[in-house]
Design a protein around this nucleic acid. Structure first.
Lengths: 200, 200, 200, 200
DNA sequence: TCCTAACCGAGACGGTACGTCAGGTCTTAAG
DNA sequence: CTTAAGACCTGACGTACCGTCTCGGTTAGGA
């Protein structure tokens, strides 16, 4: 994207485009949304979209990024598992919401467009992963989490099942799932042995 | 799909179409593959594709299904964690392979097409999930897995991190990841307490 | 124009396109006619136009050529000046007719497109010029036209004033103009001298 | 055109626009010349063009009018045919020149824009026609031209063949053509009869 | 001499049409 | 009846220009 003069840009058009793109994406998914429709609904010329964005996916992502709660702070009440649960329930509820469709569409688009993938990771994923990892590290200091685990892998283990259901649609994402994940992850799958530590 | 007369169908054309579709999908992804190209490369009329399949995704899925190793059997050596590791490493290697691109494309397409999603789940996912769940249940009987966990949720907990990396491309899927997942999942995240059972 | 298979061509679409193009051209001129409108009015895809013609001008020309009276025969009653007058009056009336607008548009388009120009000359102009020249040559044999003139130049001298008014719109083209042209051309501009032959 | 304040107008910009328009028109014809290109080449904002002219054709016409030899005087040596020939040869040479393309483009544009047509007639055509007609009238007084002919029609008869070749491009416009036209027009096409006056 | 209205360059804007691509349907000829 | 071939209608693509509309910056006259 080598941009034209940013200063002369019409904020009115920009907002109308982001809103229209997001609406259409919610209504029928990104694949069935066309640049022409976005332009028409936003009351804007197509060129204005092509001037500032590289693809309809880029528009949706900017819209999403601007509207999604920007706070990536993680609660820290001192109780790691409670804090994780609280945060993950928020995520689970977001995943279950109909408004979340554009994010799913974007992940789909990212599968065949490395640029979207990179930008998604950088903008949507990494800040939240980092916040969670930090909370986990504090949890290690507070002796609420094993010290010999890689917190980045823990983040994956906790959140991956939510993404699994989100993307493979085997079952709905629910707060109950969060409860189960945390319980299983913290308590482990090994049956309680005599000394509390399983073999291997 | 209400099919025309199956018996008169040309197997030669069918195979050529499946091969062409898979090749193109590997080369440039499903989104950038067109029915027209498949037809031309297969030396086939477009109508022959539309006659027998509902979409290019359906073609790719049939191709994938026919070529992928059909055996969903799970090893059972008596050592649950070793068996899980063995099977998951096979999956991880598959995920890491370049030939796997069509499967990823299909998952992407499924996000905005419930028909593909349903068919993907039924054909690709469920048989393998079922096989794993059964092995886990035998593991419970063999006292190698807690008896109070829902094995279907355990399947998710084990495989979800592989899908997470596959679809969000944060890091490559590797055998090491499998080792870490199994260790963390079985041993749990809670720090070893005095009595071996964490609070809550 | 390297054509696709001519045999599979839809005559229905072809006729609809020619008719629509001609109508639109009559209504508002070639410049204000768009390929999109032609397609819409003909109930045809744009691609069908682009498949068979190189430009909207080519469509109009084919339409014109197909509809214009194909007979280029020149009357030959034995009276050259009467025959010329008869034929030229037909042309003058055609020029004056509103239906003639597409021909004028085509001449305009030819000014900046040598291909249209060449095709116009070959299809519309030359056959008629040739027919007139032949009649003039017979006139020379019949001793009704000087034998020392180049009949091709005579054709120009007779018809050019009609084109002049058609294209420069100084005055309407009328049968009276034809009468004046023929009189002046045959009798000459030189004042009748003592011996009937002017100087120089 | 309701003009803004003429006094504040930038002559520098005006000249740059006229020059750019004329150059572009010579290079690729009026149809393929865009206002945007004119503006860019002239180093001028588009608005400056739209402020002072109604269309690109108007720009070209003003450019042409300013640069073309403004003298419409007709020579008068006393020999009408020689004077006509001299003047017509100048015109023929102009027609044959590559620099003449913009004038031809303008005539083409005039076919579908009555405003251009009117302005072309008024500015380019009528003064020259009037000058020629006056010379012809003096020729009648000098007994070098029949007195019973309408001089305006004679002007057409003489110049129309030049325009015919210019616009229909059947053959190049040359001084020889001028010679032929004058000879044929003055001497007439009728074969010299016994009494020097043809029938009808 | 300064003020201020106007013109100026630049170029973003809402549009229309372009010529192309691919979708899915329909037609033709061959087997 | 199926097939390969490919023309057909449709609709979206991304681009080029249209003519209008801001922006500062500059310039010229009237106060």
């Amino acid at each position: 994207m080598n941009m034209p003069n940013e200063q002369r840009r019409s904020e009115r058009s920009r907002q109308a485009i982001l809103a229209a793109a997001l609406d259409l994406c919610r209504e029928r998914g990104l694949a069935r949304t066309t640049v022409e429709e976005i332009a028409k609904r936003a009351g804007v010329g197509k060129q204005t979209i092509y001037r500032w964005w590289g693809s309809k996916a880029a528009v949706v992502q900017e819209a999403l990024n601007e509207r999604v709660n920007a706070t990536t702070d993680f609660p820290d009440t001192g109780d790691l598992r409670a804090d994780l649960r609280a945060q993950m329930v928020v995520v689970a509820e977001a995943f279950a919401s109909a408004d979340f469709a554009p994010y799913v569409s974007l992940i789909a688009a990212a599968q065949e467009d490395p640029e979207i993938a990179a930008s998604l990771r950088k903008v949507m994923l990494e800040p939240r992963v980092r916040a969670c990892a930090e909370r986990l590290r504090r949890g290690q200091e507070q002796r609420q989490l094993r010290e010999d685990v890689d917190v980045d892998v823990v983040v994956e283990m906790l959140y991956a099942p939510l993404y699994y259901r989100l993307l493979l649609r085997t079952r709905p994402v629910t707060p109950e799932q969060v409860t189960e994940i945390i319980a299983m992850a913290f308590e482990g799958l090994a049956p309680p042995g005599r000394d509390g530590t399983p073999g291997r």
